[in-house]
């Protein structure tokens, strides 16, 4: 998967510039509700419960202030990626114990073949040392797009 392919999964209406929630469950619920609001998911509880169950297996906080809550669910028609910022950070029980400021929620239907490839590529990009701090300073979707476009 190339850089520009990665960017094609992000959309401006699937960007939350500042989350209201300040707890782990609250963030998952707010983001899942946003997906229903934008008509990407039919029935928030299906995705919310699944994401909570996924978190029981271990936090999806990958460290460095970034989390990628993800799951496969029938509630979406195609792979959907929601990006959200919480500038103060949320305790997401990440292994490095750092507060999480950037959230990338990935929900894909069971048959989606790009899901794992996308997750792998996303992590590769987000953990790029050169750009990591730039991602953490992102305030708008445009800024995010510019940063991600610059990662090679």
């Amino acid at each position: 998967m190339k850089q520009r392919d990665l960017l094609s999964f992000f959309h401006e209406d699937l960007f939350i510039s500042e989350l209201k929630a300040s707890s782990k469950d609250g963030v998952l619920k707010e983001m899942a509700s946003w997906l229903e609001l934008k008509e990407k998911v039919y029935r928030t509880p299906i995705v919310y419960d699944l994401l909570k169950n996924r978190e029981k297996l271990g936090s999806t906080g990958i460290g460095g202030g970034i989390a990628i809550p993800h799951c496969r669910s029938m509630a979406v028609e195609k792979m959907t990626v929601l990006f959200a910022v919480k500038s103060k950070g949320v305790d997401f029980k990440s292994a490095d114990k750092k507060l999480v400021k950037l959230f990338f929620m990935v929900v894909a239907p069971p048959q989606d073949v790009q899901y794992l490839v996308f997750l792998g590529k996303l992590v590769e990009v987000l953990t790029n040392k050169k750009f990591k701090n730039m991602f953490l300073k992102v305030k708008s979707f445009e800024e995010f797009k510019n940063v991600i476009s610059g990662v090679k």
Binding site: T60, A75, P110
Partner: peptide
């Protein structure tokens, strides 16, 4: 729907490719 999604997740976490990706992501 929720049960089937869970069944899918259970199958997936037993999958070697998934484990590989999760490990790459630094997740256990």
């Amino acid at each position: 729907v929720m049960i089937q999604d869970l069944d899918c997740m259970i199958d997936e976490i037993k999958n070697k490719d998934v484990k590989k990706v999760q490990k790459k992501m630094g997740l256990e």
